[in-house]
Design a protein around this nucleic acid. Structure first.
Lengths: 243, 243
DNA sequence: CGCTTTTTTGAAGTCGGTCAAGTTCCGTGG
DNA sequence: CCACGGAACTTGACCGACTTCAAAAAAGCG
């Protein structure tokens, strides 16, 4: 049985039964390629689909009335995308591919079947959703109460840790694959100021860059500057019903 | 059978079977009074409990290293509090009572039992959690990409709509029960600037105030200024498995 | 190799912060 | 019921972090 991308991700948190893996694999039966820059979902579109991102990177965002953009989330392989459509009939956010990507769309009725058949998976999804909520509150505190430099630092660390979840080979450097404008739109700054902060952090020896690749040279101090905490560490899912 | 506070809230979204109501009621078997200002949970505390807020108001927040505070969420009766402890063994945020309140703590093992017995309730919790996530992204966009005035406007509208969920009597005015400093700590401003904005909105006839009570005088324009959308409206839960 | 996109840099402007000093509100106890 | 004291609100002057505008340099791409 081919383990699905999403199941592989979940299995890192908690052991899954074969039946559960099979059920999860069914969500990924219809892989679809999307080109870099392709708009997968537009705000206010009627939506009934969710996605598992199998390959590449995507992001969700909204455009404000003055034309400025707020990037809400960057997605990596194994991420579960578009859970908002489980409750809303219209998309609250747009969805675009940052790189060429492979997504696996599935209907919310397929999700319903999964929830029916696999209560434990339902519980897991609930937990993952709570983890997202916590990540969101971290960003909220970052936007609301920290300086530009702190935001850039914690943003880089967050990307770093997210990429590392699926790629064990990474130790201190990674491909961000985001323009400085996109970074700014994620953390509520202008690209100009993002540039100044990155440049400053480079001069201070906190990070270094070469053709799009970022190396974190002093993670401890970056964490301090960004008031960042990696939450992966003290996850505790032992209390879950056993499969 | 006494319908629980939380069940009543859920039942507004989707019909619940008696069995489900009973199961939910068990979460509220141990009501506990807390005084205004009481700290119910402190950041980094070991946590195993969740809460249903039955009466009063509470809030969650974090304190940044420089002493500033970011309020993450204000809770109203019927809200489900502390879902972070379903995944993290240490509290990522503090929890304090804004008014005298009644909370119903329950252990995460009680939640586990509920998820086991009632897959449909598990699904509902998953959906509610997704709704929270969307509300969070709205705030993120507000903090990241809108002016001080817009943030105050959308904050007031958000409180208004949340209070209205449980109190049908409300048409255009409500008790905020938050100081201007608390408002500022919610939306990333200083109390001084919150005051300036509120005052300005009062002069423009957008709102009015009398002994702590806020009246929204021009909701349409407030929504425009705050780039606010009430998401309650286009919720769609019809596709859920039937009880 | 030419064209677009992205990064970099500088100068000037502004929104919201900081500081500080009233003023009003409100709960408490006499 | 009033006096007192602390918390919350209000106001003004000044400041600075980040934005805006603009333009050049560098990098990526077909």
């Amino acid at each position: 049985m081919a383990t699905s991308c999403f199941a592989a991700r979940l299995a890192k948190q908690v052991p899954l039964s074969d039946a559960e893996k099979t059920a999860l694999a069914r969500l990924e039966e219809n892989p679809r390629k999307v080109k870099r820059g392709a708009m997968v979902q537009r705000v206010n579109d009627t939506v009934t689909e969710l996605f598992v991102l199998r390959e590449g990177r995507m992001m969700s965002f909204v455009i404000m009335p003055d034309g400025s953009r707020q990037i809400l989330r960057v997605y990596f392989p194994g991420d579960f995308i578009g859970s908002a459509s489980t409750i809303y009939s219209r998309a609250p956010e747009s969805l675009i591919a940052l790189t060429d990507a492979i997504i696996c769309p599935f209907d919310k009725h397929a999700l319903r079947r999964l929830l029916d058949e696999s209560p434990r998976v339902a519980a897991l999804l609930f937990l993952l959703s709570n983890a997202e909520r916590v990540a969101m509150t971290d960003r909220l505190a970052s936007l609301g109460r920290t300086s530009a430099k702190a935001r850039v630092a914690s943003f880089l660390l967050d990307m770093f840790d997210r990429i590392r979840v699926t790629d064990d080979a990474i130790t201190d450097s990674f491909d961000l694959r985001l323009t400085q404008e996109e970074i700014g739109d994620s953390i509520g700054l202008t690209s100009v100021h993002v540039n100044r902060m990155i440049r400053q952090m480079e001069e201070e020896g906190l990070i270094s860059r070469s053709n799009g690749r970022i190396t974190l040279r002093d993670i401890a101090r970056l964490e301090e500057i960004g008031h960042y905490t990696n939450r992966q560490k003290d996850m505790d899912l032992d209390w879950l019903p056993v499969g």
